[in-house]
């Protein structure tokens, strides 16, 4: 299996505090990889490092490499905007922009310079169909995205990320604010999306990791303790720490 995203000896400091302590991880193409671990273990930090979201925080210092198709996204002079176009992100809380549903989906395309109305319409429709949102919103494309329910908003945010056709999709606990039905819909969507994209998801929900992830990484205090096929990690963890965590002994 081809490695899509490779993390190589990644260290991250917030000020003097080391939050990631030398992470190594190979994420294969067209797979869903789940990052699990107790709160504060660094899994969200790692995820955000994968599309250079820490650039916004002057306190955060990153050392090491993250290779997208063997190309280091932290290489000096690397165009961070281009990186983020290839590596999309869905956030913990749905964050639709205060714009219409249509404009939300078309946002990434428009800033990239796509102005052809017909083309935009076609892409918006295709994207909404592929995220199973089309039937629900096709008559309300001009309505504010803020009028949608929480679950719909999150699917809209996924659709928005997919519309620019990234290669990797990062999801930071995308269902933590949603009800079980919305969660099920998003999980189904993820399984559909992995045919075309490589997905990395941070989740607190063990069941969710088992339902969707091909591979799971267990993190603890800024380190990857164990990284294995999901079934294997949950059924027969190799490390004692992993077993303890899965048994609910801490976290």
């Amino acid at each position: 299996m081809k490695t899509k995203l490779a993390v190589r000896d990644l260290h991250l400091h917030y000020g003097t505090k080391e939050v990631l302590k030398g992470i190594n991880l190979d994420i294969p193409e067209n797979n869903i990889v789940a990052l699990i671990g107790p709160s504060g273990c660094g899994k969200s930090t790692l995820l955000r490092a994968m599309n250079r979201m820490h650039d916004l925080n002057p306190e955060a210092k990153v050392k090491g490499k993250i290779l997208l198709d063997d190309d280091d996204i932290y290489a000096p002079g690397k165009d961070v905007v281009a990186v983020r176009r290839k590596i999309g992100m869905v956030f913990q809380k749905p964050n639709p922009f205060p714009k219409s549903i249509f404009d939300n989906i078309a946002y990434g395309l428009k800033i990239a310079g796509e102005n052809d109305k017909h083309k935009l319409h076609a892409i918006v429709e295709r994207t909404l169909r592929s995220s199973y949102l089309w039937e629900e919103v096709k008559d309300d494309l001009d309505k504010s995205a803020l009028s949608l329910s929480g679950g719909q908003q999150q699917r809209l945010c996924i659709a928005r990320a997919v519309a620019v056709q990234p290669e990797v999709l990062l999801m930071d606990e995308p269902c933590s604010a949603l009800d079980p039905i919305s969660t099920a819909k998003i999980e189904a969507l993820m399984l559909e999306l992995k045919k075309e994209y490589t997905i990395v998801i941070v989740t607190h929900n063990m069941q969710q990791a088992q339902r969707v992830a091909d591979l799971t990484a267990f993190m603890y205090f800024g380190e990857v303790i164990e990284f294995a096929p999901t079934r294997q990690l949950f059924d027969a963890p190799q490390m004692e720490l992993t077993a303890n965590y899965l048994n609910g002994n801490f976290g």
């Binding site: 979201m53 281009a82 999309g88 992100m89 956030f91 964050n95 990434g108 945010c157 928005r160 990320a161």
Partner: peptide, 8 residues
């Protein structure tokens, strides 16, 4: 963040 993540 949302806009930046979309390549803005």
């Amino acid at each position: 963040e949302g806009a930046l993540a979309l390549g803005a």
